[in-house]
Design a protein around this nucleic acid. Sequence first.
DNA 1: TATGAATGAGATTTCATTCAT
DNA 2: GATGAATGAAATCTCATTCAT
Lengths: 210, 210, 210, 210
Amino acid sequence: MSADPETPLRADAQRNRDQIIAAARVIFASHGPEVPMEEIARAAGVGVGTLYRRFPDRDALIRAVAVDNFAGVLDNAKRLSVEAPSAWEALVQLLYHGAELQLSMQLAMLSQRAHEILKDDPEVAHLREAVLLEVDDLVVRAQAEGALRKDVGAGDVAVVFARIVRQLPAHRLKTPELATARSIAIMIDGLRAGPVTPLPGRPLGKDDLI
Amino acid sequence: MSADPETPLRADAQRNRDQIIAAARVIFASHGPEVPMEEIARAAGVGVGTLYRRFPDRDALIRAVAVDNFAGVLDNAKRLSVEAPSAWEALVQLLYHGAELQLSMQLAMLSQRAHEILKDDPEVAHLREAVLLEVDDLVVRAQAEGALRKDVGAGDVAVVFARIVRQLPAHRLKTPELATARSIAIMIDGLRAGPVTPLPGRPLGKDDLI
Amino acid sequence: MSADPETPLRADAQRNRDQIIAAARVIFASHGPEVPMEEIARAAGVGVGTLYRRFPDRDALIRAVAVDNFAGVLDNAKRLSVEAPSAWEALVQLLYHGAELQLSMQLAMLSQRAHEILKDDPEVAHLREAVLLEVDDLVVRAQAEGALRKDVGAGDVAVVFARIVRQLPAHRLKTPELATARSIAIMIDGLRAGPVTPLPGRPLGKDDLI
Amino acid sequence: MSADPETPLRADAQRNRDQIIAAARVIFASHGPEVPMEEIARAAGVGVGTLYRRFPDRDALIRAVAVDNFAGVLDNAKRLSVEAPSAWEALVQLLYHGAELQLSMQLAMLSQRAHEILKDDPEVAHLREAVLLEVDDLVVRAQAEGALRKDVGAGDVAVVFARIVRQLPAHRLKTPELATARSIAIMIDGLRAGPVTPLPGRPLGKDDLI
DNA sequence: TATGAATGAGATTTCATTCAT
DNA sequence: GATGAATGAAATCTCATTCAT
């Protein structure tokens, strides 16, 4: 009789929920958000019915995966902000080890479908804001460190991030990891302080997104 | 019942074919290659029947759009190679005005579905090869000009291109054109010769793709 | 594991059983016998599991509700037969206060599904027979009283009952109670002895049903 | 390219549409409005796809059947109003030969589901109003003829109609046609002018419905 | 030849029933 | 014994493709 949305799930139900989100994360990342629900259920090792009991429709599942992901990114950013040797290094790490970042970006920025679903979700909005605040802080500090070029803002960094994290499909490359690492390194060089070419317009802040 | 593939189409049939490809290009670019055939037909102002008479199935349509696009990119690259003030400038122009480039990349590299379809098509393979040859030439010349960093190959450039051209969805940005222009400029700065950070591995050539 | 069907239920189990039947009665009456089992369980304030422990499947529940109802109608008819000032009045009362009558009729006569389930149930058959005997008695006595027209039998009366008790959905009427009362009164006027129009055929007795 | 809703259907499409409505009418009448769409399609001799092309969902089909039916009732009423020997006779005929009347009533008044769907449809509303106007006229005239009791209005008549037309399921009766005819006759006797019992309240007019 | 109607396979979603907690 | 989670069969609906007009 627990209509209360706060009632914690039963142990087995929680386990299933986690498995479903994990499976959906992997599949969404590799095949986009349109894969048959049945396939996701199978990958999670549950029946479709279970999937639908936990998430009333595809949108709810996408939302849940997105929230889970943004939360992961936020954790990561906060941890790196404290533990990395410098703010610049924190930004760089965030990129290189950005599996979660990647999916978040993909869901939030790259798929029309996903965007429609997420754009008005308050939980997503809240996490997004928190992540951008963290990035904003890193940007300011990395500029103070003299490592990040001065003419960019958190918005610029987020946009470059979004482009970078878009995983190139492995199938087109003989040496996919190397190619990825190299292209990220090249783009990071573009962000570095030093003898840069002037950019058009003005620095884009975190509020220039949306 | 002209089975001869070389028979030129009647004028109106050719017009239909062109309209369909044009419509499909726009829709594929904005919504990916999974949109209902009926929608494409409607956008082209023809009935589904006509679409299917011209292209026996979705794969054939995707192939035709891809060929059309690669051909456009090749034209562009050849023209820029001759007309641009420098090889570096040609590469930069290719990026900034890369609407066709974008769709080619998206079709060829970003969508699992499209990739499956295109990977064994000889016409696509031929055009791809021609484009990469052109890029290879520009890369060598731009390095000789001292404008492009020495430690990259045509493969690296193509990978960075692929990341760059992935259009950020306008809906997430207040100032989409500006954001795009800025992020491209940042990434190009990463390609520039000058005081660069060492890249991992070795330069990737055009044959490191696929 | 008392397989003995006669073992009385534990007090709480009996309470659950009663709640379920009460809830099902209300829901069947308003939405027909196809409502989701979960909804019935919720309305009864129990889990589905409990519902299924008490009634092995939907059919069993429908049967139980029908039995409960017919028993109520029988009680009612017997009481009215004794307490009402006349047999005619007993028939009229049976109609006007026929909530249970209504559901019985609906289950037994109006829903294809319910009919299939009930038609071979011996307990239902027995109660039905008992109710019809009671009505038969009232019919004979009401005709002897000179109140009920002579050319009808218990079968006719049951059929008219079935039509009358079909509750008109309140949502279609501005003044639902009044409309119901008036239409019942009109139809009862049709049953009254007096200057009547001849009916086709012969009086239908209780054995003309089924 | 005929997006115009007024464009007449192609001959074969119109034939299918008609067959679907005819099949749905029969099935709705005997099994209610919840039967599987596939079954309706099969009965109409078309594929499900065709059914869904013509009627985007079940609601649309229900609406179409209802409109078709109300139109039939209206035709019937108008014809009888002119051709029947008296207004009273017209009302009686409307009842006895009320196959369409029956389904209309069932759809409009008896099924919760159907009512929700129809209650805001303007076309249905318009036809309903037209039918009630016709009945209103017949009521006034039948009262002037001295055949219909004076203390009823069109609303009362419609309510009694609704109760009458609810076909008793044949499976419960040995002699279903006879039983139906007799019960209708009995109820009509209740509507007759003559020595009647006073009804509660006031006559209900056509605007007391809804 | 162009059109859009028809088809049916497959995807989404619901719900009766079973079973772990 | 009670609960509500899990299951999968069945219903709803969509869309690629074929075919009559």
